[in-house]
Amino acid sequence: MLRTAVAPGDAGPREELRRSDVLVQALNRGALHLCDAVAAAERGDDPAPDLAAADDLLAHRPFFRHLLRCFLLEHTVLGDPVPVLHEVLAWAAGTEEVRLAEWCRERLRGLGAPVPRPQRDVVDVPPVLRARGVTGREMEVLRLVGAGLGNPEIAARLHLSRRTVETHVANLLAKTGAASRVELRSRLPR
């Protein structure tokens, strides 16, 4: 996989892997699909089928799924690396994978992207929202928006300024892709 990441146009490493008996392991087959996805993207082909196959094979091995995807962040095959890093951090928050989480935070800082700080969160953020970069404080605001409160009421309830609440709401709209407060309410997990 590392040889493919360095030289995606060289089919030799992937062919060597295909001839090997290590493909009896789902982990190795998943890694091969990720390599094939990188090569497909390099050729201008659609990498989605190989990415989906890798996800299926690695579904029960989340650490390796996330680690292998991190190896590919330098390539365009996964798209923007920021959401990928947020997804890895969301998963790592419920584990003891401190080194992987710190590596992701360092990469986010290097990209100039916001770095979630879960130790400051007083509220659990569902993984789907954590993967989008929603913080604990934003989750508090989202729940109050979902309850129908306006910015002044949210500010009073959370002891924040109105401007801070406006910023949190704007961040939530951007992170969730919602177009309005009404649509934002639909993003609340049931």
Rank of each mutant, 00 (worst) to 15 (best):
A40P: 05
H33R: 11
V38H: 02
N28D: 08
A39Q: 07
P62S: 10
P49R: 00
A41L: 00
V24Q: 07
L34N: 02
D56K: 14
L51G: 14
R43F: 02
D50W: 12
P47A: 04
L32K: 06
F63W: 04
A39E: 04
E15Q: 13
D50M: 12
V24L: 10
G9C: 11
G12K: 13
L32E: 00
P62D: 00
P62F: 04
L34F: 09
A41C: 06
E15M: 13
A40K: 00
P62N: 05
P62T: 07
Q25S: 12
V38N: 02
A59N: 00
A54W: 02
R19V: 11
R29N: 10
A37M: 04
L51T: 13
D45S: 05
G9L: 10
A53K: 06
G44H: 05
D36L: 08
L34H: 09
L51Y: 14
A11G: 09
D56T: 13
A41G: 02
P47L: 07
A37G: 07
P47T: 01
G30Q: 06
R65S: 14
G30P: 13
G12Y: 03
V38A: 06
L58F: 05
A52E: 01
G9M: 08
F64T: 03
E42Q: 10
A31K: 12
Q25K: 09
A59L: 08
L58M: 04
D21A: 15
R65A: 14
A41M: 01
R61K: 14
R61L: 15
R61F: 15
R29M: 12
G44Y: 02
R61A: 15
L57N: 09
R29L: 12
E16F: 08
H60Q: 13
A39M: 05
H33F: 03
D50R: 15
L27P: 05
V24Y: 06
L32A: 07
R18C: 10
D45P: 03
H33Q: 08
S20C: 11
L23H: 06
E42Y: 13
P8E: 01
A40H: 00
A59R: 13
P49K: 01
A26E: 06
V38L: 09
D45I: 01
A59K: 07
R43S: 12
V38G: 02
A48E: 07
A11T: 09
A52F: 02
H60D: 14
L34M: 09
N28F: 08
P8Y: 04
D56C: 08
P49Y: 00
D45Y: 00
A11Q: 03
D50H: 15
V38P: 06
N28R: 14
A48P: 07
L17E: 08
R65Q: 12
L17Q: 10
R43M: 03
D55I: 03
E42S: 09
P49W: 01
D10R: 14
Q25N: 04
L32Y: 09
L34A: 06
G30H: 09
